[in-house]
Amino acid sequence: MSLLDETVSVPRRTMTLFFMIDTSGSMAGSKIGAVNDAVVNVLPMLDEISITNPDAEIKVAALEFSTGCNWLYNEPKLASEFVWQDVQANGLTSLGAACEELENKLSRSKGFMQSASGSFAPAIILLSDGAPTDNFEAGLAKLQGNNWFKSAIKVAIAIGDDADKEVLAKFTGTNEAVFTVHNIDALKQIIRVVAVTSSQIGSKSSAAGDTTKQDQVISEVQNAVDNIDGAEVATKVDGSSYADDWD
């Protein structure tokens, strides 16, 4: 095709999977160990999806947050090239700052969404065990104004009972996208299920949305969660939010 000569580039499309990992002090020990283990093991699975998927390649970016926040690498890496370095747990829980940092990078001109992403929304997986210690509302508000975030698949994994599930539900937009785990095994399994499902669904070409990708991910993960011991799904919200008669 002379019209598609060397002067014309048709890039491969990319879907980016973001891990936002709570590395505050309370995650120390077996929890952070489980996270490290789970991510290391899920990367090859993501790579497989990337290779066999004709629609898009999958890139991974990881943001750890404790007292401050920090990207593991300065740009998203292909799953096959992503070398996971174990993260350590120490400090506070600056989820607000992490939201702002994520919002910075969810941009085409100066962020991570540069490489010809065509029409793939990113997937964002938030892992946390506790409540934020900074101004989370402000950070989230900024994030919610971002178009990429609005279209993203958002899932949160709450680790243990101390996790502030309301906060996580605010992040994902629905408490159905918040999955709680109570033991280490469940944690590992769910990280795997969520990452794989988000990548599979996220990187498929879909049409003008009926069921959003987020909803598809939620329903598939819910099905899988039934089989994971120690993991639970949030119950459906009661539709009527009105107070009773005041008399």
Partner: peptide, 20 residues
């Protein structure tokens, strides 16, 4: 435009067509 990602790639294709 989805095939080209960044808009300049699409514009470049149209330039190619114009030249042709």
């Amino acid at each position: 435009d989805d095939s080209f990602g960044e808009e300049t790639n699409l514009v470049n294709f149209y330039v190619r067509v114009a030249k042709s």
